[in-house]
């Protein structure tokens, strides 16, 4: 049997590694391998040329303000390529600082604006204090077969993000994009931006599978991913969810979304 391959480009792992993004990669890799799919990871470091057409999936993690500014500059020449790939349904997973970088700018508390990649019409502004804590959202997944529709994780961001795209989900508990509109993250085609780390994917195997499927589809494979034994993953997911929502709300959410 010829092995199916997914080529993952990990953008600037040496800079954007603040929230354990290798955890996300470990999850994608293992879940792919269990389906006989090879996930090939290429770190793209500062100064390396980025050939967007060489990849089926890109990962952009979180870093400090200083590191984000460096990455913004480094990626600017590839803006057009990235935009075209997104329109063609290339999956990109952008987390925390990486998420902020997708938009027009990220404004710091001192008023300075770090220019973004302008891949989506989105702005991030400073606010009072950081938004920190465990978070649970209701996944507004389009065309998902998963019967579990909650996502859990941790958020920690100073910036407040505003956009008019569909959100990744509705906040059940936590702050989300800006602490105001009860929405978290963004999904445009196969581009996913989110503040949720923890890391994001280990406790959210349904989301990990969705991303793998986007990548396979983008590459022209439309077969289904076989189900895995995710008992431990869901145990960990529900332990956080239950504690976060409290027993009553958890019971209601569980009935509706799980």
């Amino acid at each position: 049997m010829s092995e199916v391959k997914i080529r993952l480009g990990h953008l600037f792992p040496e800079l954007l590694n603040l929230y354990a993004d290798q955890g996300n990669i470990a999850v994608l890799k293992r879940r792919a391998a269990l389906r006989n799919i090879l996930l090939e990871v290429t770190p793209i470091k500062l100064g390396n040329e980025l050939k967007v057409e060489d990849f089926d999936l890109l990962l952009l993690g979180g870093g400090s303000d200083r590191e984000q500014a460096i990455v913004g500059k480094e990626l600017a020449p590839y803006r057009e390529d990235l935009q075209a790939a997104i329109e063609a349904n290339m999956p990109i997973l952008a987390i925390c600082g990486g998420y902020q970088l997708l938009g027009k700018f990220y404004e710091l508390a001192n008023g300075e604006r770090i220019p973004g990649l302008r891949l989506v019409d989105m702005e991030t502004k400073p606010g009072h204090g950081r938004l920190i804590g465990n978070i649970a959202i209701e996944w507004m997944a389009q065309n998902e077969s998963s019967k579990e529709l909650t996502i859990v994780g941790f958020e920690n961001h100073g910036g407040r993000t505003y956009h008019d795209y569909p959100a990744l989900g509705k906040v059940l508990k936590g702050h989300g994009n800006n602490g105001r509109d009860h929405l978290e993250g963004l999904q445009y085609k196969s581009l996913i931006g989110t503040y949720i780390h923890g890391p994001l994917l280990p406790k959210n195997p349904h989301l990990a599978d969705a991303i793998l499927r986007y990548a396979l589809n983008y590459r022209g494979h439309f077969s289904l991913l076989e189900a895995l034994d995710d008992q431990l993953e869901w145990d960990a997911h529900h332990a956080v969810l239950q504690e976060l929502l409290g027993n009553k709300k958890y019971a209601r959410v569980r009935q509706r979304l799980c």
Partner: peptide, 8 residues
């Protein structure tokens, strides 16, 4: 409070 560090 953030257990992300376990993955590092």
């Amino acid at each position: 409070r953030d257990v992300s560090w376990l993955w590092d």
